[in-house]
């Protein structure tokens, strides 16, 4: 589904991501962990085509992000760490805007909006302007916008920040359901307990370099993910 090969991204003199390679298969929830400034967001933004990178290759279902960006973006959805949405729109207008861009037929989008807005308890607020939304409500709207076009790959940057416990639980269920249906999810998080329980595979990045990746069992063995992470960070 998602293949990252030797990704290197530099900001001037600083190398933010250094020779990173990962392979995410359909059906996998893949966690991406690392300290602040490790290069997680840079990697995620490179995958979704927001950031250009100097070296390496990223492909989604065989399409290169650099050479066929539109084809890749049709297959993916992205939720950033801070969902700065269009404040001047109402929630429903934003969802319809996203659905229009992805070419989702009217009846299909209506059904999906109903399903996910009801699930995340946002239906009553859909006519409100986004400027009146709380951070959590914006996050929920971004989640619905991501799911509205049934993407193959969902890329999320700290998706649980700002969500209430119930919405977090629902999002986890939505993620599992998406992957059980053959999709894939690649997300960054600092909440190691969530990563440990939810992810099929996990990658740990430190100062731009991948230091460990694999199935949860391969990465943590008999220890907790937190212990492994702190140990690797200390090295």
């Amino acid at each position: 589904m998602l293949i990252i090969e030797h990704l290197t991204k530099r900001y001037g003199e600083k190398t933010a991501v250094d020779d990173l390679s990962l392979h995410i298969q359909p059906g996998e929830i893949y966690g991406f962990i690392g300290h602040n400034g490790a290069g997680k967001t840079t990697t995620l933004k490179s995958i979704v085509g927001i950031l250009r990178f100097e070296e390496g290759r990223i492909t989604i279902d065989g399409h290169s992000v650099m050479e066929e960006p539109v084809a890749c973006k049709k297959m993916l959805a992205y939720i950033p760490d801070n969902p700065d949405l269009y404040d001047f729109m109402s929630g429903i207008k934003y969802l319809n805007f996203i659905a229009d861009v992805f070419g989702i037929p009217a009846d299909v989008r209506q059904e999906r909006i109903r399903k996910y807005a009801d699930l995340l308890e946002l239906t009553n607020d859909l006519a409100q302007p986004i400027s009146a939304y709380s951070h959590g409500m914006k996050q929920k709207l971004a989640v619905i916008a991501a799911w509205i076009h049934s993407p193959k790959l969902i890329v999320m940057d700290e998706p649980f920040v700002g969500l209430d416990p119930k919405a977090s639980h629902l999002l986890k269920e939505m993620m599992r359901e998406h992957c059980d249906a053959g999709g894939a999810i690649f997300f960054s998080t600092h909440v190691l307990e969530v990563a440990e329980k939810l992810c099929d595979k996990v990658a740990i990045i430190k100062q731009g370099r991948l230091i460990k990746a694999g199935t949860m069992e391969e990465v943590k063995g008999d220890d907790s993910l937190e212990e492994v992470f702190l140990e690797l960070e200390a090295e």
């Binding site: 269009y86 001047f88 729109m89 109402s90 929630g91 429903i92 207008k93 319809n96 805007f97 659905a99 229009d100 861009v101 070419g103 989702i104 037929p105 009217a106 009846d107 989008r109 209506q110 109903r114 239906t123 009553n124 607020d125 859909l126 006519a127 409100q128």
Partner: peptide, 24 residues
């Protein structure tokens, strides 16, 4: 404003982006 579900007419990407600009 209470949300009332209604069918939205689907538009192409360019039309959606233009409407977004005019909305802004």
């Amino acid at each position: 404003v209470r949300y009332q579900e209604k069918t939205h007419r689907a538009r192409g990407p360019l039309a959606a982006l233009v409407l977004k600009e005019l909305g802004r």
